[in-house]
Amino acid sequence: MDELEFRRAVLADPNDKELAKATGDDLKKQAFVKEIKQLDKKITEASNIPVPDGLAHRLLLRQTMAVHTQKRQRSHFIQLALAASVAFILGISVTQWQFKEAASLSEYGIAHVLHEGDYALGASEDISLSQVNAKLARFGGEMTANTGQIYYANFCDFDNIKSLHLVMQGDNGKVSVFIVPHMQGYAIDSAVKGKWNSEAYDLSKASLVIVSDVPSDVAKMRDRLSKNIQFSA
């Protein structure tokens, strides 16, 4: 280790144990090491600035507060999560329940007729076959022959699905007919509620729901319609 290297090493780290060997008996080197060690002592003292009073306590306090807030937030989170799950379950079960209530086309048909009252049944127009067919075209269907007077033919909302609502002349009175696009989750069945009888059938492109207050009219209307309504492929 030459003189320059030695000085560099001492200035880099005066407390390095390796230096003792390099210093040896050289008085000049010993004096230099001593000088730099003294400088280091001064630097150490000068760097040792006083720490603000109570810093340690403030650090501990801040952490305690942080933990406290965290805990509170966590319990809030749990409460919120609980409330959310309850609301979720409630939502699911209500939907399920509603779904079940109206999961039958024939029941829905009766409900529709009941709800509507005289609005459609009271109509007494004479709608031509071509007018009906213009509306049936939407479902890809066509009525080939006249099946009696048609009092009413309009699109309606059948549980949020656009459908065709017809009121036709049956043997014993007016018969309500709904032509509904195929809907998933609906049973094709029959239902009776009060004086109302209803049956649903699947045709090739749509379902047919017939509602009448005379049971035999339902079956007859069904026979008539299945012969006279055709769906294009």
Partner: peptide, 16 residues
């Protein structure tokens, strides 16, 4: 690192 330490002390020493 050693070079920087050397220069740091050297600068302090000279300034002093």
């Amino acid at each position: 690192v050693m070079t920087r330490l050397f220069r740091a002390r050297n600068q302090v020493k000279e300034a002093l």
